[in-house]
Every structure is written in structure tokens, then in C-alpha cells.
Amino acid sequence: MLSSEIIKRPLITEKSMLLVEQQNKYTFEVDKRANKIQIKKAIQELFDVKVLSVNIINTTPKKKRVGKHEGYKSELSKAIVTLAKEDKIEIFAA
């Protein structure tokens, strides 16, 4: 898979901003099929930073209903990437 396929988008929320500020950890939405090693490589390639560790969270899809149509919220994986102290990713810059 291409790096750009693995990393879908940055997750920018209050909580993720807090992680950036306090622990230099960056949160992304990633492809479900990707593993930690692929993610690590992809981030290093895309942002030119050194990744220390990757944690993945798989969210359970929730049941949603619109009228009589039943469906699910899309399933997604979140990856929390810890960077080396001196590195930063611009799009999160607080």
C-alpha cells in the first residue's frame, strides 16, 4: 500500500490537541488493514519525522438508523503516533 493510502487524515480534536501539547503524540485516521510497522514507515516518509512508537485503536461501528433504513457508522482505526522529542508535524501546530 502507498503511504498516502495508509494515512487517511489527521484527527484534530480537543483530546488529540492535548496529546500533541503534552506528550508529542499525533493522532491520525488510518486504513483498517494497515499494521503498526506500515504506519510508522508511512508517517516517517510523509512528514520526515522520527517515529518512536505507534498505538492503534479500532473503533466499533455503531448502529445508526435513518428512518427505516438501518446501517452502521463506518468502522475506523485510529493510530496514535509518538514522535521523537525534537520532531513536529505542522498541520497540528498549536
Binding site: L11, E14, S16, A94
Partner: peptide, 12 residues
């Protein structure tokens, strides 16, 4: 989106 009302940082 992603922030509670009034908790947005300046950059975002």
C-alpha cells in the same frame, strides 16, 4: 467539530 464550544485553539 471535535471541540467543545469555546475550547478551540487560535490556530485551529
Amino acid at each position: 467539530k471535535g471541540f467543545r464550544k469555546g475550547k478551540v485553539t487560535r490556530k485551529i
